[in-house]
Structures are given as structure tokens and as C-alpha cells.
Write a protein that binds this DNA or RNA. Structure first.
Lengths: 210, 210, 210, 210
DNA sequence: GATGAATGAGCTTTCATTCAT
DNA sequence: GATGAATGAAAGCTCATTCAT
């Protein structure tokens, strides 16, 4: 049973997370002050420190759950063997895009300003592991689409290029005010075309080159 | 005729621009203090305010010349009719990448800018014009590569996708500490492969779809 | 008769006092947060405020019992007529030192206090009375050692000087991390030598001067 | 020639040093906020950071000059061979006391809260060196008074005890509001008596023990 | 009696910017 | 034109304390 206190506490915590998510997404991690988050969340800035040890922990708490969800989401898709690899890959790509645009603050911090500090190990480790896992999942399916031996130079190259496309799409729209649904409505077919064209280009190279 | 004073003054201004360019590129716009710029430029930090109204104006002043240079660079290339359009396009793309990674602070401001402020109109206008011109030049050459009627839906799509790739590459490496030359040595062939694969993918779609 | 509630309540209070005593001794009054005391005491930090109006009152409550104990300890010693006065005095001095180093936070507040606040009268009065009593006891035994008429100028001087030595010893070691027992093992003979030399010096002066 | 600007700057710096000295002495290093120092000095708290990198550097700047002066003062005295060692020692002790009571903030920080941090090497090294030098000078003269072989256990003990007395006197009066001159007028003869009695006590022990 | 939630005041420090010379 | 002096605003964070349950 949830006491009324616990409930209120949880509400505050969620309010903080929600406020931080919104503000980080809009103006970036460094561009947002704790006091602003507090104001947006409707509490004092000291209250934030009750729930999160410091600003970085707040970001971490904000990032982990969606990241894990995405990872599990990916896993589910990967193991669905009745789908064609290409269909899987594009579906995963679309979900990745949707995720990054939905959680813009996470995107900028987790996928862009990656791995610098060595100190905050425990935390960054957790995040980093998840990020690596995500990319590995994508890479694996890409390999299914392009039948090249693992470790082959060209596979690595195609992998990189594929991620350029992903990053390019996300970074192009991660600063827009336009709501996610509008973007997806307008552009999801463009995104699919992008991946499709790219994969066809890869295949052509494999045919010619092999 | 330049008086000696004016000359010396111009020198100071250039020293400031040069210092700011170097520091912004290394540590980002927000990561550099005016005092540091001044020290690197060999003048007092108050002197900067004689030449530039504030920090943002300094950044914009810093951005214009390279942008214009790139534009002229592009123009030169475009008008060289003896080159195959595809060669032109890829060369322009590589120069664009090199430019963005060389002037990382400019990149983030010029190509990522959310375009909100209403006050700084005059400046942003100038920059914006140049940016639009650059993209137009790229788009034009893309059209030469892909013979589709202007305004055709697929052309617009391919254009967008091509820019995704450009942004993806640049944004992937714009936060690295690795020097530009190292990046280019390691990856320029990957970048070329990316553009080539993409263009081939486009062409395939045109053949199949038409 | 104590109800069970009162008993439990008293336990909590003692836990707080014990925790505070330990922490204050280790890291000083200002170096310890109320939350830490609470954690060490196994209760909520708000609970502390039920028993003690504020942090300062806690410190004072912490100080009284040991002070009174020391006073009674002194009384016991003073009335043991079979001991030589000099033996008594040195024994009392050693106990005083041991006390101050054991209760370092008390020492700094009780014996170093500037005596300014007017509000906290009631409390400081209590403490002050005890402190005065302690010094009086020491002074009395010193007088037994040095047979000088009460109120004699030299007696007052010797008294002061003797306290300088006491303070000097305590203040030298009151900021060390070294455990009390180690200090006493290493240095108690030095402390005794100090008092002995000083008393002999006093006696010499009395002989020469009288 | 001093420009008016430089003069004004020096005034501000001195005002800050003076304010910090006063406040540190009254309420201790940790008990004083930068804003308070600024207010006392009649400037903004940010101005302090122009002259002193941080709070600790301010303390350092505050401490070094008087410490060095005292050291030189001691050196002068030590090399005056026409004075009896005992006279020298007592004179040095009196100067040490006067110094500590004049610069109470220095006393509490330099002679009490000694050597913990290992990081701020450069600075603390300088201070520490001077402190050690001071104590060495005092110890040397004490050895001249008490002809014992260097390294002899009793010499070390006497040395320690002598410093207890010094610390005791200083710490007893370092928290008083009473002006230095009043203290010295009232008590300098008591202080001299203290040292004299102690030295006689030492000599007595040497005679008896040897 | 006891507690979790919450807060305001305050800390050191940094920075872009202005003022007087 | 150029500079050193100086500042207000703001940052992340801690703490003793109060309120509602």
C-alpha cells in the first residue's frame, strides 16, 4: 500500500525528472541550472538534492530507464526470426530515431558527448554498457543484411556509415521545436528511403567489389 | 590608405579572432572565457569589447569569413565544367566536412542554430544567407548527379537524405579531441564510400521507380 | 516509575548524545551535520529536534554530564587526605588532560568559549559554573602544594602559569587524529615531567623570593 | 612612480588583507565568508578573486609576510652573541607570543591546524618550512640554555614542554577581545615568570638526574 | 514520539561585462 | 585605442531547521 506521503514524494521526484528532461532537451545539460529545474518542477532547488545526489546523477536517472527500455525493445525485435533482416534493421532504426527525438536530452549526452571522464566510473559504465549494447544489436542485424564475414574491413565501414545516417537524421531534428509525431508523419517515409537507399548502395558495392 | 594606427588596430582584431577561433575549436564556445581569449591574443580582455560588442558577436564575426571562403570555394568548383558532377559533389562534401571539423564552434552555431533570437537579426541574416547559399550549391550539384526535374518530390527527399549523411558525419566527429588531419587520414575513404553508396542507392531507386 | 515509552525515549536521546559525542570528537562541531548525527544514532534527523532545540543546545547537553563527572572526580581526589598535595595536583592535571582530549568538542566550547552570547544565558551559566568550580578545585590543590597566603599576588601568577601549561598541552593535541590512548602512552610521562618541573620552578622562586 | 590606479589597486588589496586578517582572527578561517570579507573591505566579493585565486591563497598571502618577518627577527636575535642564552630565549618567546596575539588568524591556522592536506603542496610547503624554521630556532636557543647533547631524550622532552607553555599562553589569550598592548602590560611579567620557572625546573632536573 | 518532505539562507567560485583612467 | 579595477548575476551545492502527517 502506498501511503499518501510516499505518493507525494514520488510525484515530486517525477516532476523533477520531467522538468529536467524537458529543459535538458531544450537547452542542453550545461545550459540548464538546477534552480530552473526546480522552478519548472514546482519545488525548491534543494529538494532536487534530496532525490538526486548531484546534477549528473539526475541526468543518469533520467537516461537509464528509457535506454534500458530501448535495449529490451531491440532484443525483442532481434529474436523475432520470422522477419526479414532488412525489415528488422529498418524497424530498429526507426525506433532508434523515435527514441532519440523523444528523449532529446539523453541523445545529446549519451550519444554525442561520449566517454570523457574516468572518475564517475560506476555510473558512466552502466550507461556506456547500454549504449554499446544498443550499437552492437544494430550492428548484428546489419551484418545479417549484408552477408560479410565478421571483422571484414568493409563491414566495419558500412557499419560506420550506417551510424552516420542515423546520427545525421537525429541530429538534424533534435533541435527542432516541432513535435515528434509531426516529424514522423512528415518524414518517416524519407527516413525509410534513406536506409533503403544506403543498404542498396552497400549491396551494389559488395556485388561489384566481390 | 591605412594609417599606422589603423594597421595596428587591425592586427589586434585579427589576433583576437585567431585566438578565439583556436580556443572555440578546442573547447567549445561555452568552454572558453573572454579572459582566456584575451590572454591568447595578447591583449586585455576589455580590448575585445572595443572590437566586438559581446561574446556572441565575436563568434559571428569569427564565422563569416570562413563561411564566405567556403562558399567561394564551392562556387569555383561548381563552375569547373570539366569535372563529372559526381566527382564535384563528393569533393564539395569532403570540403564541407573538413570545414565543419576545422571550425567546430562555427559548425555548432551555424548549422545547428535553432534560429530563435529576434534581436540579433542583422547578423543572423548574413550568416543565414550564406548557409542557405551553401546548401543551394550542394543541392544544385546533387541535381546534376541525379537527373530529376527540379521540385520533384524524390529530388527533395534525396537532397534531405544527402544532408543527413553530411550532418551525421560531421556531428559524429565534431566532439572528438582527435585532430582533424588524423580523422581525415583514417576516415576520408569511408566518407567517400558513404556518399558513393548513397548516390548509387538513389540511382537504383530512380531506375526502379521510373 | 518509568513507563516503557519514557524508557524508549530516553534510549533515543542517549543514542543521539552518544553519536554526537563521537562525531564531534572526531571531526569537530562545525564539521558534523545534523543528518550525520541522526544516521549514526539510528534515527531521523528531525527526531533530534524533539530532544534538543538546536545544534548548540545539543552540544551543551553533551557537555554537562562529562563536566559534572569530572568535577565529582576532582572532589573525590581532593578529599583523599592521605595523598600528598603534589601527587593530587598532578593526578588531577592528567585527568583534566585526558578529559579534554577525550571530549575535544567540549573542550573547544567550554574552555575556549568567548562568552559573548547573551541569549543562551541559562545554559552557559550552568556550564560556566562547573568550569569555574573545576578551576577552583585545581587552584586549591595548587595552593596546598605552594604554601602561599590566598590572594597573594604570586599565587595568582603561579595559578595562571599552571593553567597555561594545561591549556598548552591540551591545545597542542586537541586537533590530532591520533587516538587518546596512543597520545597518553607516548606522552604521559612528558606531561608529568612538565608539571613537576614547573612546580619545582615555583618552589625555587618562593625560596629565593621569600 | 606609482600611478594613481596602481595605488588604488594596492589599497584595495590591503583592505582585503586587513579585513580578512581581522575576521579570521575573530571567527576563524572557516567561520568567515568571502562576502563578509568583501563587505568589511568595502568591495564586491568578486574583487577578492582578482587579487587572490581562492580563499586559501588569501590566507596564505595573509600569513607569509608576518611569518617571514618573525623568522628574520629571530635570526637577528640568535646571532647576537653578547646576550645570555636565557635572555635570548625569553625574548624570543615574548616576541612569539606578541606575534601570535597580533596575528591571531595566522596562529590558529599555521600553528594549530597543522599539516593535513597533501595536495596544496607548494603553498603549505612554504608556510610549513617557515614554521619549522621558527621552531628550530627556538629549540636551538633552548639547547644553549640547557647544555644537553643533541638528540638526548630529555632535551626533546624539555623542548616539547617549553612549546606547551608557549602554546598555552597564546591559546589562552588568542580569543580575547582585549587589545594586545593591554594584555602585554598586564601579563608580560607573568609570562616571563612562567618561562623562568620552567627553565629553572629543567635545570633542577638535570642536576638531580645527572 | 517520530518521521519524511521540503525549504531558505548561505557557501565558494566563475564569468561576461562596464567604468574610469 | 587600450587597460586594470571592479561588479552583479548566476552556478552547483550543503546545512540547520520547520511542517505535515
Amino acid at each position: 500500500m502506498m501511503t499518501r506521503q510516499k505518493l507525494r514524494s514520488e510525484e515530486t521526484k517525477q516532476a523533477i525528472l520531467s522538468a529536467a528532461g524537458k529543459l535538458f532537451a531544450d537547452r542542453g545539460y550545461d545550459g540548464v541550472a538546477m534552480r530552473e529545474i526546480a522552478k519548472e518542477a514546482g519545488c525548491s532547488h534543494t529538494t532536487i538534492y534530496i532525490y538526486f545526489k548531484d546534477k549528473e546523477v539526475l541526468l543518469h536517472a533520467l537516461s537509464m530507464p528509457p535506454l534500458i527500455e530501448l535495449k529490451e525493445n531491440f532484443e525483442q525485435l532481434v529474436t523475432q526470426s520470422q522477419l526479414a533482416p532488412e525489415t528488422k534493421l529498418i524497424e530498429m532504426s526507426m525506433r532508434f530515431i523515435r527514441f532519440c527525438l523523444l528523449h532529446r536530452s539523453i541523445y545529446s549526452v549519451v550519444f554525442i558527448a561520449k566517454g570523457e571522464r574516468v572518475d564517475k566510473e560506476q555510473q558512466d559504465l552502466e550507461i556506456n554498457e547500454t549504449r554499446v549494447a544498443l550499437f552492437k544489436q544494430l550492428g548484428q542485424v546489419l551484418q545479417d543484411v549484408l552477408p560479410l564475414p565478421l571483422g571484414e574491413e568493409r563491414l566495419l565501414q558500412f557499419n560506420r556509415i550506417y551510424f552516420f545516417m542515423l546520427h545525421g537524421i537525429v541530429s538534424t531534428y533534435s533541435h527542432t521545436e516541432e513535435p515528434l509525431t509531426d516529424i514522423m508523419d512528415r518524414l518517416s517515409s524519407t527516413f525509410e528511403t534513406a536506409f533503403d537507399a544506403l543498404l542498396n548502395g552497400f549491396k551494389l558495392k559488395m556485388t561489384n567489389g566481390g
